[in-house]
Amino acid sequence: MSTASRLDVIKPPEPSRAWTKQRIVGYFLVSLWGLAALGLIIFLVRAWNPELFSRYAPSYFSGLIITIQLVGLSLLLGALLSLPIAYARDATSKWAAWPSYMYVYFFRGTPLLAQTFLIYYGVGSFKSPLEALGLWWFFRDAWYCALLAFTLNTAAYQAEILRGAVKSVPSGQWEGADSLGLPRLLTFRKIVLPQALIVALRPYGNEIILMIKGSAIVAIITVYDLMGETRRAYSRTFDFQTYLWAAIIYLAIVETLRNLIEWIERRITRHLKR
C-alpha cells in the first residue's frame, strides 16, 4: 500500500531556468558566432565562382600534399634525431650534456621563421665551399632548406617531450627489470617506453599540430605548400575567399587530428580507468 502511494506522488516540474546575466551574455555571444558563421556561408555562396574553383582547387590540393609531406617527413626525421639528443641531455658526461642542452635551448628559444631564414638565405653565404663539397644542390632548394629547418626545430622539441616522458616513469620500473636480469635496452623497449608513450602522447600530438600550423611559414621562402598556393591565388585574384578556404582546410585538419589524438589517448589508457 505504502509503496504504491509513494509511486503515485507526482514530482513537481523542474523550475524553469532563470534568465541570469550569464545566460543572456552567453546566448548573445553564441548568436554572434552564429551570425558570423552565417555571414561566412553567405559570403562564400555569393562569391562562388566555378571558374576560380576549377582553376585553383587542384593547386590547393597539391599545396596540401606538399604541406603533409613536409610536416610528415620532418616529424619522422626529427623523431630519429631527437633520440640521441634526449639521451645526451641526461648523460653524466658534460661534453655530451652541454651541446645537447645548447641545441635544445637555441632551437626552442628562436623563432622558426628566423631559423628557416638562417638556413635558406644564410647558408648562401657559404656557396663556394658548399659547391666544393657537392652539397649546394641541397641548400639551393627552398623545399630542402625548409625540411632541414623543420627537422632541426622539431627534434629539439621532441627531445624534450621524450626526456620528460621517460623521466616520468618511476625508477622502480628500471630497478624491477634490473632485478629480473633484463638487459637495459630491452627494459627500455618493453617496460619503460610503453609507459612513457602514454605520457608523451598528448605533447607529441600538440607538436604535430604546432608543426602543421608552423609549416605555413614556408610560403615566405617560396615553397608552394597550402599557404603558398593560397598566397599565390590571392595575389592573382585579390579575392578574399582564397584565404577563407585555406582557413577552413587548416581548421578541419587540426580539429580532425585533435579528436584522433583524444580517441587514441582514451584507447591506450583503458586499463587505467576504474
Binding site: 602543421i212 609549416s215 593560397t230 590571392y234 578574399f240 584565404y243 582557413a247 587548416y250 581548421l251 580539429e255
Partner: peptide, 13 residues
C-alpha cells in the same frame, strides 16, 4: 586551430 600566419593575413587583409 589556424596557423598564426594565416590569422595575421585574415586580420590584415
Amino acid at each position: 586551430g589556424l596557423p598564426e600566419l594565416l590569422t595575421l593575413f585574415l586580420v590584415f587583409y
